[in-house]
Design a protein around this nucleic acid. Structure first.
Lengths: 125, 125
DNA sequence: TATAATATACTACAACTGTAGAAAGTTGGT
DNA sequence: ACCAACTTTCTACAGTTGTAGTATATTATA
């Protein structure tokens, strides 16, 4: 099991999602394209968020000429795993039945819930 | 399915959890006892958080003599359901397989994962 | 009824978050 | 060598969050 990974604020998480969606190292322009599709923001805003992610050790940065190239230091999988645990513990109070009940009433379709069960079964081989 | 419910900051969520654990309406002293077990804080801090929860319409408040009595306006179940959905959408990018994979690697025991599957199955009757 | 006890309201403040303008550095092209 | 284009860094600011001291209101009681 992994050490705890801090929860990122929404805006920073959106940027990380964009970074994770690319082959590293990633240039700002690529991140901008992806983030811009769902959450347009000023270039300087994006750069501020990238700087904060570097400070928080979620990204490393390297200069290539005038550009900065970013590389994830935390994998998407590790982040999701850590936050899933956090969610069960902090939000659901550690209760699996509360968690399951919440999922059943979360708006997922019956078919999606079945799919989730199957994935859980297969995943734990 | 319910309308979206805003995510509460950690401290406010802890207070809500304590409120939900009681029979409403709840006095500050009762909340203090519960919250204090895991997260001791000054009385005024707790009162500030309660005030913010009232402002955010998570609680209603009524005076009884010198005391204030608080009643949840959002049920724990609705909050968990809403936040579960939010987690899958925002954190897992809507991918159930990413979600399942994260759960499998979240540090839950194999036995707990099996239990979760069973709960999901039973829950969706 | 004066006072101690108790409860909440008001005020405060630093750190974090979302957002972006202004400034400054880098480079390709002419 | 100069400029236009582009990139990042610096600075800024309002709103949120975590935390709590001070002031004020209420009440039981001696």
């Amino acid at each position: 099991m992994k050490e705890t990974i801090r929860r990122l604020p929404d805006a920073e998480l959106e940027v990380m999602q964009a970074v994770w969606a690319c082959e590293p190292p990633v240039a700002r322009t690529d991140i901008e394209t992806i983030v811009g599709q769902t959450h347009p923001m000023a270039v300087t805003t994006l750069l501020t968020l990238l700087t904060r992610l570097v400070e928080k050790k979620f990204l490393s940065v390297a200069k290539e000429g005038r550009r900065s190239l970013y590389t994830p230091l935390v994998t998407r999988h590790d982040y999701l795993a850590s936050q899933s645990r956090r969610f069960i513990d902090k939000v659901c109070g550690g209760s699996l039945s509360a968690f399951a009940s919440a999922l059943c009433d979360s708006g997922l379709e019956k078919e999606e819930l079945r799919q989730l069960r199957d994935l859980l079964e297969r995943g734990q081989l």
